[in-house]
């Protein structure tokens, strides 16, 4: 029992130490916004890599989530519920939950682990020290552009994901479920509320920030060579996924209640 309490104490302390450090890095990255003009090339490059680079994967996966959501919705609703409801449920599920959250979980692997391993490799091979010695702040050069790319490109990716998923849903509804295009669109139009769009976009903005910040932080804290790089990449995926799901609850509750 005593050992268990000690373990909990140590884990709690570690968590708060890491939390404090993440906040410090975030503060430093925000401080670097003063030099945003200086790092414009890196920001554009990261926006391209994180955003445009992720689009093919996200669009392919969104298509399947749209198809699956539609089939499941049609299966779940009973025969006396009008079929146009399929369009409503697919659109709202994708906009509010599936596109931002599910795609963020995918991007925690693609983007988060990629950032952690790239910066981690730079850290263990003295490239971060080289940056410092050349008068370039690694927080400004490496972290700030990635975080900006995350918070700006994730909402954009979400919009593409919703469009493709709804397209997939429409295909499944019309070809497999016997729902007409008119009914599907009617369902979507009846369910459409502007707040659903911005709630989904705010969620994806937060997720973009969480994934890129954690990837950068764990990359910058990397040591122990190749083993450390692997550990940082793994930790980024685990921690990002956990925080995404926790934030999903907090944001859904807060934003829907607020709106």
């Amino acid at each position: 029992m005593k050992k268990f309490i000690l373990f909990l104490g140590r884990a709690g302390t570690n968590f708060f130490v890491h939390f404090y450090r993440v906040c410090s890095y975030l503060g430093a990255a925000l401080g670097q916004l003063r030099y945003i003009h200086f790092y414009r090339r890196q920001i554009v490059e990261q926006m391209y890599r994180l955003g445009i680079g992720s689009l093919p994967l996200i669009m392919a996966l969104s298509m399947f989530t749209g198809l699956a959501t539609t089939i499941q919705t049609a299966y779940q609703i009973s025969s006396y519920i009008p079929k146009y409801i399929v369009g409503s449920i697919v659109f709202q599920s994708e906009m509010l939950e599936l596109a931002p959250t599910l795609m963020a979980l995918v991007l925690a692997g693609r983007v988060g682990a990629g950032i952690a391993s790239e910066i981690g490799t730079m850290k263990v091979s003295e490239q971060v020290d080289a940056l410092i010695s050349m008068g370039v702040d690694p927080v400004g050069y490496l972290m700030m552009p990635r975080i900006i790319a995350g918070v700006t490109m994730f909402p954009l990716i979400t919009i593409f994901a919703v469009v493709v998923a709804v397209g997939g849903g429409h295909y499944a509804a019309t070809t497999m479920m016997g729902v007409s295009t008119t009914d599907f669109v009617r369902g979507m139009r009846e369910a459409y509320r502007f707040k659903d769009v911005w709630v989904g976009l705010i969620k994806s903005t937060f997720y973009g920030g969480i994934i890129t910040l954690l990837g950068c932080y764990l990359g910058m804290e990397t040591d122990q060579g190749a083993k450390g790089v692997g550990m940082s990449a793994t930790a980024t995926v685990v921690w990002s996924s956990s925080f995404i799901l926790i934030m999903d609850y907090i944001l859904t509750r807060t934003l829907l209640k607020f709106s």
Partner: peptide, 22 residues
Amino acid sequence: RDELQKLRKRVGVLFQSAALFD
């Protein structure tokens, strides 16, 4: 910070691993 940046522009460093940006 600014003084350090100025100093670092006056000092070249060759790292053990060369530390080239790969």
